[in-house]
């Protein structure tokens, strides 16, 4: 999946997802992950690197976004576009979002961490608690008394 770019000399790293799928990724892309970087520095990367916490579809998404992120470096339009994609993903598929977020956190990819964190932050901005609950399937488990107490504690934020 990796070698679509024109660099012929770039080293290929082989990774295996938790569900057994094997990925070949250009070194430059793989090194975006500090986890993989550390593993390679510790020299346990001569063979296939196992990623026991990441499934194939999620890993595919991670790679895709790493590449997008690299492409958009100096492109404000694309940056904006990528930032706005979070809203849609969180609305339609919060499960994939949380998997992606956890994978990115586990793989320790700074650029994608910033992006996915921004997605949820943007999503939470300006929405009413009721709407957030509904979209993210969060169950309100407060009693009316508890709820009243919380509202009272920070009344300014709920006016």
């Amino acid at each position: 999946m990796a070698s679509t770019s024109n660099s012929t000399s770039s080293k290929i790293i082989t990774l295996r997802s938790s569900d057994g799928e094997v990925f070949e990724v250009e070194e430059s892309v793989a090194l975006e992950s500090n986890l993989i970087r550390r593993m390679m520095e510790d020299d346990c990367a001569n063979n296939i690197i196992p990623l026991p916490n990441v499934t194939a579809p999620i890993f595919y998404l991670v790679i895709e976004h790493c590449k997008k992120h690299a492409e958009m470096k100096d492109n404000k339009e694309k940056k904006k576009e990528l930032r706005s994609q979070g809203e849609e993903l969180l609305k339609s598929d919060p499960h994939t979002y949380s998997n992606l977020m956890e994978a990115v956190n586990y793989l320790d990819i700074k650029s994608l961490m910033d992006l996915t964190a921004q997605w949820l932050a943007d999503f939470l901005k300006g929405k009413s608690p009721r709407l957030i609950r509904e979209l993210l399937k969060i169950k309100n488990d407060f009693t009316p008394e508890e709820e009243a107490e919380i509202l009272e504690r920070n009344r300014w934020a709920f006016d």
């Binding site: 977020m101 964190a117 957030i132 969060i138 309100n140 509202l151 920070n154």
Partner: peptide
């Protein structure tokens, strides 16, 4: 992860998340 996300949100919105659930 969550606290760094909430740090990106205006404080008002961050505080409002306290009512979502326990």
């Amino acid at each position: 992860v969550m606290s760094s996300i909430l740090a990106l949100v205006p404080l008002r919105d961050a505080v409002r998340t306290s009512i979502l659930s326990k």
